[in-house]
Amino acid sequence: MRISTFWYCVKQGVRNICRNIWFSLASIATITACIFLFCMFFSIMVNIQHVVRLAETTVGITVFFDEDLNVGQIQAIGSEIARRPEVDRMEFTSEDDAWEIMKEGYFEGAEDLAEGFEEDNPLAGSSSYQIFLNDISKQSQFVAYLNGLNGVRKVNYSNSAAAGLTSFNTVIGLLSVVIIGVLLAVSVFLISNTINVTAAFRKNENQIMRYIGATNGMIRAPFVVEGMIIGLLGAVIPLCVMFFLYHQAVGYLQDRFQILSGIFQFLPLETIFPYMAAAAMLLGLGIGFFASFFTIRKHLRV
C-alpha cells in the first residue's frame, strides 16, 4: 500500500468517526470502562503476585532426616530433591550449624550457659535442608513428595499464608475475567453498531468504490481504521486516569490501613505501567480491529 493511500484511509477513518460522533463516543466510553477495569484488576493482581513471590522467597520448607543417616546419605537425598522442577533453591544446615544458630538465638548474652553442651550437641541428628519453591501453589504437592521419600523424618512448612494469598489471587483473577469478558462483549457490540451506522452512511461511496474497481481491502480499510482509533482512544483514556490514580490509591490505602504496610509492599507505578499500557493498547486495538473487520464483511458483498 502506498503511503498516500495509507493516509487516505486514516483520513477516511477519522472522517467516519466525526460523521457519527455520538455512536463513536458511546463506543469509546464503553471500551474506556472495560479497559479501566482491566487496568485496575491488572494492578491488583500484579501486586498480589508480588506479595506471593515475596512470601515464596521468605517462607521455606524444612526437611529433617532419620537420625541414623550420615551427612553423605543426607546430601544424596538432597541432590535428588534438587532435581525437582519446582525447587528454586536449597540451603543445607548441618547439625553443628543448627546448634550454632540456636546458640546465637537462645543464649545471646549468656553464652556460658551454652558451654555445658560443648561436648554434647543437643541437636544431633537435626541436619536439614531448607527448600524454597519457584511456585508456592505447588507446595502441598511437593510436601507430599517429600514425605514419601525414604530417610525423611519430618517436613515443616507453613501453608496458611501462601494458600490464602494464592486463593485470593485466583478469585480476583476469575472475577476480573468475568467482568472484563462482559464488558468486552458490550464493547464489541457497540463498535459493531457504530461501524454498521457508518457503513449505512457510506453505502453510496462503497458502491461507487466497487464499480471503480476498489479491492475489498481498500473498501474495508477506513472502517478498520475507525474501529482501531475508537479502540486506541478507549485504551489511552483509562491509562491516563490510571497514571494519576495509582499513586493516590496506594497512598490512600497505606494511610488508611497502616497494618497493610507490614504485609503489603506495593509495586511502584513505573514497574507495572509499561506492561499495563502495552496490554491495554493491544486490548483496545484488538477489540477495534476485530469488531470492525468482521462487521464490515457483510457490507462487502458485491
Partner: peptide
C-alpha cells in the same frame, strides 16, 4: 473482479457523485 472493473468505466443515470 476489482482488477477487471478497473478496465471498465461506468456512468449512471443518477450520476452517483459524492
Amino acid at each position: 473482479v476489482p482488477k477487471y472493473r478497473r478496465r471498465l468505466g461506468v456512468v449512471f443515470q443518477d450520476f452517483r457523485l459524492l
